Computed example of a mutant assay.
Amino acid sequence: MFQQTNPQFFEELSADIKGRKVNQIVDLIYGEVPLRKEDGSFWTPRIIGSSKQIEVHETFLSFVWCAIYSTFVKYLETVDFPQTNNRQGKAAYTANQDHLETATQMFDYARSLIVDFQKWNIDVSPNPEKYLAENRDFIEQTTLYYNSAVKFILCHEYAHLKFEHLKNIDKNTDKSRFCEMEYEADNFAIDSIMKGYFEPAHFAAEAQRLANEIGVIFGIVVMFYFKASTEGAKHPNAEDRLTNALERLKLEDNHPGWGIACTGFKFWDSQFGKNLVWDIENKSFKELYYQLLDQIKKEN
């Protein structure tokens, strides 16, 4: 999946492997451990300078899938379906409380993985490995967005190796330079994915584009759930990364990506008690996003 990000990507990646900028092996670390390490850092994706490898932890991947599932279902049931009812002028869809309760449970499980690893009960909880056919829509759509989110994350880390960012930093490097490199990595990842869109005439063009766009958004949104503050010591604020991605994707004002970003803010709000004011009436998803963003900025 990663190698086929766009038609030229494999050739580009192969050249960087041959040029010894990138190790051809992604280091997938297995282990039933929480994401928070003893030193307070997290098992989030990173690059290893000595081996030039991308490192990804098994628990992080579980966290991402569960966080996407909960956010996506919450978006559908509380944002997308009501808007559809408004457009159609009738109550074609009603919120399914069982779906919402399951989404909340999955979110609680996802965030618990940060501090206390508990085994994923695939006999009871939604998961991409074992599920009933009647539950396939939410699960398989989640997996579709998860795949695109992981692709975005891998492309981001690959960019750090490709542009040899580690060679350009030392103990005296200031935050602005770190931020520049993070945006460069994000923009490379987004542009690489956009280059892989099918031609408009392709029968799956719209669905594939939507999956990739939403995947990029989720690749950033899930990082909000790690802590109450959006500020990073050596990274741009999380909301600034998200805004950059949304604008770079050139999404329409009511694109689901804006709505999912808003739902991500809502989950983060419920997790850390930010008391954001959610006023969706007579607003596009984009307008709602910037309204919520303004509240976050004022708090920071």
Rank of each mutant, 00 (worst) to 15 (best):
P128Y: 00
W43N: 12
A261V: 04
D39Q: 08
H57R: 14
P34S: 07
I193T: 06
L28E: 10
E32S: 15
G196L: 01
Y183S: 12
G259C: 09
D174C: 02
L100Q: 11
E38M: 03
D137S: 13
L242C: 08
Y197R: 09
M194Y: 04
M223A: 02
I296A: 03
K283C: 00
A189R: 04
K162Q: 14
E247G: 00
L154R: 01
D269P: 03
T59K: 10
E134I: 03
Y93G: 05
E199G: 03
D16F: 11
F198M: 04
V222S: 01
N147W: 00
T59H: 13
I122C: 14
F285E: 11
R209F: 01
C155M: 05
E164D: 13
Q295F: 01
T94E: 12
K274L: 14
V216H: 05
Q53S: 10
N135R: 11
T142D: 02
P256V: 08
F178D: 04
L132W: 07
R209D: 01
R46V: 15
G219Q: 10
N135M: 06
K266M: 04
S51P: 11
N85F: 10
R241M: 01
P236G: 03
W65D: 07
Q105E: 15
D116R: 10
C66E: 06
A103H: 03
K21G: 09
H165C: 12
Q4L: 05
A95Q: 14
Y30C: 12
D253V: 07
S62E: 14
Q83K: 10
L154Q: 03
E281T: 05
S270W: 01
Y197T: 02
L242M: 09
G196I: 00
L132T: 14
W43Q: 13
